[in-house]
Design a protein around this nucleic acid. Structure first.
Lengths: 132, 132
DNA sequence: TTGAAATGTTAGCTATGGCTAAGTCGAAGA
DNA sequence: TCTTCGACTTAGCCATAGCTAACATTTCAA
């Protein structure tokens, strides 16, 4: 049953990475729309406190995805940008696919938020192929 | 942006419940195939230590999903059984759908493991409808 | 029947991700 | 200029989910 354990290991891994992906995606989005990413906006959009955001940002800095000076706006490093772009692409493929099979736009958006972190390349390719 | 925060809140909730669903599903599966569910088998199949399983089982007992005597096999309460049945049904719908759109069986199985916890009723219905 | 192996439990460590409360900084208005 | 208010940080709490190590119990075979 080592292969089954491997499947669950992957699933746990995906769960761990989901928040990281959400953060870099959010930061990229804020920079694109507002010109800069501030902790307070991230906290507001995620529905958590600024303290929680601060703690997570510390981890992302440690992992080399985010850079910022004290009290300054947040920036993505190159690897952070790459991760954000990848996350965004996956997200859009999943949303497009769900809409294509008849899921209503808001539900598609919401479900994609969870699903995008768990689709393999193969499944993502199938989604992309079938949405046009 | 309260609605966006709500989406993320749901996603966090799903992440929290994913492990619970995995456990009850696994316990039901072990009972169905082996006649009983033992911690050691759960640990092996999930690829974690027995100590980790013990701790999670404590939580599931607290939540009224699992029952067991000390050193005895694990049982599901009625609500545990209901949860397991629901999880299993979702799982099968997702797997069938993924296979249907051309994803290979083992990848379908693996991706479903992550995806099943994040599909809304609406999306699940679309999956079911499209797999025949 | 008894002792070793398998299984289960417990204690205690780490890291994460929530929270509140309190303190620090910076920018904008009186 | 100075003060105040919004934004950021830090400390410290809780629960979860992993781990190892040590201990308890059960089971099975010699």
């Amino acid at each position: 049953m080592a292969e089954q354990a491997e499947g669950f290991r992957r699933s746990r891994e995906a769960r761990r990475n989901a928040l990281t992906d959400d953060y870099v995606e959010m930061i990229a989005d804020l920079i694109a729309t507002d010109g800069e990413a501030r902790s307070v906006d991230i906290a507001c959009r995620f529905g958590v406190t600024q303290a929680t955001v601060a703690k997570t940002i510390l981890r992302l800095k440690r992992e080399g995805l985010v850079a910022a000076e004290r009290y300054g706006a947040l920036h993505l490093t190159d690897s952070g940008k790459a991760k954000a772009a990848d996350a965004r692409a996956r997200h859009q493929v999943v949303v497009a696919f769900l809409k294509r099979i008849g899921v209503s736009p808001d539900i598609a958006e919401r479900d994609a938020e969870g699903i995008e972190h768990h689709v393999s390349e193969e499944t993502l390719a199938a989604f992309a192929r079938l949405s046009g």
